[in-house]
């Protein structure tokens, strides 16, 4: 499980599901910048871009647009975004392979410790058999791998009516 052999693929606009409620499939309005070295497109400030963390950090705050989101890889520390999180509309978390579980902790840290309330998006090797667990860690948007059926994934969100730790008092 080294760095992925293939270049990171942009999420498919037709494979975005939102656990809700209500759980639904919606189009993806975001434009994903995957290469940290790629230049910003013309008129970037008004476009809904999602930038790689390295690119975001390289820009001085005055050059960042409030329209933009940021995405993190498995080794990225979400805490470097702390000053920006209150105004960031979207944070993406990339799963190079579904068995790399670091993104689950990234999500928990963003939602818990960092109090991030904007859209938290999983993308990459996101499969229907993991969507229930991703949603439980705080992801409210899941860009499925393009071969995955959005309908089946929406159904899989209901794999369990049981919730972790619900039986333990004060746990939640």
């Amino acid at each position: 499980m080294n760095a992925p052999a293939q270049p990171i693929a942009a999420p498919s606009a037709q494979h975005l599901i939102r656990p809700g409620p209500p759980a639904r499939c919606t189009p993806d309005p975001w434009i994903w910048q995957l290469d940290p070295a790629a230049p910003l497109p013309p008129d970037a400030a008004r476009q809904p871009l999602v930038l790689p963390l390295a690119h975001w950090l390289a820009l001085s705050p005055t050059r960042r647009s409030p329209c933009w989101g940021v995405w993190l890889g498995p080794v990225d520390d979400p805490e470097v975004l702390l000053p920006d999180l209150p105004t960031l509309p979207l944070v993406g978390v990339h799963f190079p392979v579904f068995t790399d579980g670091r993104g689950y902790t990234t999500a928990r840290l963003l939602r818990g410790r960092c109090c991030y309330r904007g859209e938290l998006r999983a993308f990459g090797d996101v499969l229907r058999d993991q969507v229930y667990f991703l949603a439980r860690c705080g992801f409210d948007a899941l860009s499925l791998r393009p071969d995955q059926s959005p309908e089946a994934a929406l159904q899989a969100l209901g794999d369990y009516s049981w919730e972790p730790l619900k039986g333990l008092a004060h746990a939640g």
Partner: peptide, 16 residues
Amino acid sequence: EIVRQWSTLAPEFLFL
């Protein structure tokens, strides 16, 4: 038993 309940399908820790 407490640890069993916490660790069963603990969503953050299924792909360690």
